[in-house]
Simulated scan of single mutants.
Amino acid sequence: MLKDLESLIPPTIMAVAFVAVVITILRSQNPRRREAARRRERAAEEADPRIHKS
């Protein structure tokens, strides 16, 4: 019984990791989140004194 459990642990870990990666990718592709990230980046660039606009 214990040997069977030990043989199932690595595939279970890989399955959980795969699902986590897929969820991360789907979240990063969310258009609202991407637009919010663009707005934050634009605001940070405008507030940064090192960036001089010509």
Rank of each mutant, 00 (worst) to 15 (best):
M1W: 09
M1T: 11
M1S: 11
M1C: 11
L2R: 08
L2P: 03
L2H: 13
L2C: 13
K3C: 06
K3D: 15
D4P: 02
D4Q: 15
L5V: 13
L5M: 14
E6Q: 10
E6K: 08
E6G: 03
E6L: 15
E6D: 14
S7V: 06
S7E: 14
S7C: 05
S7F: 07
S7N: 10
L8P: 01
L8E: 13
I9K: 06
I9V: 15
P10W: 03
P10T: 00
P10M: 01
T12D: 08
T12F: 10
T12W: 04
T12Q: 04
I13K: 04
M14P: 00
M14L: 13
A15P: 07
A15L: 13
A15S: 15
A15T: 14
V16G: 04
V16S: 11
V16T: 13
F18N: 09
F18L: 11
V19N: 06
V19L: 12
V19E: 09
A20K: 07
V21F: 09
V21R: 04
V21S: 08
V21A: 13
V21Q: 06
V21C: 01
V21E: 04
V22N: 04
I23S: 03
I23G: 02
I23Q: 00
T24G: 09
T24M: 07
T24H: 03
T24R: 05
I25P: 00
I25W: 12
I25T: 14
L26S: 00
L26E: 10
L26F: 09
L26H: 04
L26I: 13
L26M: 09
R27G: 07
R27N: 11
R27M: 12
R27F: 12
S28D: 14
S28R: 08
S28W: 08
S28F: 10
Q29E: 14
N30W: 07
N30T: 10
N30V: 06
P31M: 01
P31T: 02
P31K: 01
R32N: 14
R32F: 10
R32T: 15
R33V: 09
R34P: 00
R34T: 13
R34G: 03
E35A: 11
E35I: 06
E35R: 00
A36C: 02
A36S: 14
A36T: 10
A37R: 06
A37E: 14
A37W: 11
A37S: 14
A37L: 11
R38M: 10
R38E: 15
R38V: 04
R39I: 10
R39A: 13
R40A: 12
R40N: 12
E41C: 01
E41L: 02
R42E: 14
R42I: 01
R42P: 01
A43G: 03
A43P: 00
A43M: 08
A44R: 08
A44I: 00
A44E: 15
A44Q: 12
A44C: 04
E45I: 07
E45H: 03
E45W: 03
E45S: 06
E46F: 03
E46Y: 08
A47S: 15
A47N: 10
A47Y: 08
A47L: 11
D48W: 04
D48H: 02
P49Y: 03
P49H: 06
P49A: 05
P49W: 02
R50V: 07
R50E: 13
R50W: 12
I51F: 01
I51M: 03
I51N: 05
H52I: 14
H52Q: 15
K53G: 02
K53M: 02
